[in-house]
């Protein structure tokens, strides 16, 4: 699987992650080589094999719907890159 420059750009766009031109070229060859190494899996017939999402059988875990104290607002907002009052501040989304 040889990825094209455009495909790499497309994947980065899906991940909402910017890449420089040099990174795009580097990942094109590296990710292509890694994808090639995955081809070994095609040797295995998995038609009737169930998929395992986890190694242990997990079921829904419920708890009582009770109110608990939350973390202090100030401590949480202290990590915010930008804030306004008691809100996280982000770039405007609507023009």
């Amino acid at each position: 699987m040889k990825l094209s420059h455009e495909q790499v750009k497309h994947i980065a766009r899906l991940a909402r992650m910017g890449l420089s031109e040099a990174e795009t070229e580097k990942f094109r060859s590296q990710v292509s080589a890694i994808l090639d190494s995955f081809e070994v899996l095609n040797q295995v017939d998995t038609t009737d094999v169930p998929a395992a999402t986890h190694s242990i059988p997990l079921q829904n875990i419920f708890r009582e719907d009770e109110a608990h104290a939350s973390y202090p607002q100030e401590e949480i907002l202290a990590n915010a890159p930008e804030r306004e009052g008691s809100f996280f501040k982000v770039q405007s989304i609507l023009e």
């Binding site: 994947i11 980065a12 909402r16 992650m17 910017g18 420089s20 990942f27 590296q30 890694i34």
Partner: peptide, 16 residues
Amino acid sequence: TRQFGFGPEVKRRIML
């Protein structure tokens, strides 16, 4: 933020 906040291996795995 992701382009300059993540290192190369993290970006490589996000791409994969």
